[in-house]
């Protein structure tokens, strides 16, 4: 009886899994099919015949995939590097030092961590306009940086390092900068990686803000390239094959990355949960 129940559960979960993977299956199959194959009656789903690489050729012909990737990678590296830098410096101070208004400043970290950024969409845009950051990749990068969660993570991590390590270094005559560089910093790479991973997908997929900020063709990022492709139609017929091929081109590298590092993601989420 119990065995039947268990296998019933497994079947149910497998069904849910298939449902959640369905968009990816359709995307992959459709990208290798002629344009309207998925609309035929009956649906032409077979991956063995009638496949073509034309969609991909077309994508590379009409969209500047290379420059979109370069722009997105620039944004990603710039933003993630700044976030890690800010998170390490500020997180270290919050964990090891007592100073004026520390509690209030840390409350500010928590508030900015929990307040979704989209809420300040309009004021953020107006400020960016004032500072002349519109339609510039540097502008998008600077306005995308949000290190609050990283500060929180680094602080928790540094709190776990025994304080006596710093004390003994201090007794040996090491000053604050030296303690940071020689004692703390060598222990931080794991949490730096966690900070980077936790924010990179958000930056890569941040369509809303990039769409608002960037208008010129040269500044197109991967999400913007996709949105350009998704509006493609010929004689009123949507170019589904091209859109799906573009999607594959846009998500495949990151999906592979995610599958490679999935353990980090899942552990990162459980770490941010509820207090026991």
């Amino acid at each position: 009886m119990n065995k039947i129940k268990a296998s019933f559960g497994k079947v149910l979960i497998s069904l849910i899994m298939v449902l959640s993977l369905l968009p990816f299956i359709i995307m992959l199959l459709g990208s290798f099919k002629p344009n309207m194959a998925l609309s035929l009656v009956p649906v032409d789903f077979s991956p063995f015949h009638n496949t073509t690489l034309n969609n991909f050729k077309e994508v590379f012909a009409i969209a500047d995939v290379g420059s979109a990737y370069l722009n997105s990678i620039f944004l990603l590296v710039f933003v993630v590097a700044c976030e890690v830098f800010i998170a390490v410096t500020a997180g270290y101070i919050f964990a090891t030092k007592f100073f004026f208004m520390r509690r209030w400043l840390f409350a500010l970290v928590i508030v900015t961590m929990m307040m979704p950024r989209q809420l300040l969409l309009v004021p953020n845009f107006m400020v960016a306009k004032k500072l002349n950051l519109i339609d510039s990749l540097y502008g998008v990068a600077l306005t995308t940086i949000n290190a609050s969660y990283g500060i929180f993570l680094v602080r928790q991590y540094v709190l776990g390092i025994p304080y006596s390590l710093y004390e003994s270094a201090r007794i040996d005559g090491c000053k604050d900068p030296g303690i940071f560089v020689y004692i703390a910093l060598p222990m931080l790479p794991p949490i730096m990686a966690a900070v980077a991973i936790s924010s990179m997908f958000g930056v890569w997929n941040d369509f809303l803000w990039q769409n608002v900020m960037l208008s010129s063709k040269a500044n197109r990022t991967v999400p913007l390239m996709l949105s350009f492709l998704s509006n493609k139609a010929q004689n009123g017929i949507p170019q589904v094959g091209i859109q799906l091929a573009g999607s594959v081109v846009a998500v495949l590298p990151l999906l592979v990355f995610f599958l490679f590092f999935q353990k980090w993601f899942i552990e990162g989420i459980s770490a941010g949960g509820v207090k026991e």
């Binding site: 968009p23 990816f24 359709i26 995307m27 459709g30 998925l38 997908f201 890569w204 997929n205 369509f207 991967v222 999400p223 996709l226 949105s227 998704s230 949507p238 589904v240 859109q243 799906l244 573009g246 999607s247 846009a250 998500v251 990151l254 999906l255 995610f258 993601f265």
Partner: peptide
């Protein structure tokens, strides 16, 4: 972790 635009394209289809 997938861009919403990608999903929107597939869902539209």
């Amino acid at each position: 972790v997938t861009s919403e635009i990608v999903l929107a394209i597939v869902w539209k289809n």
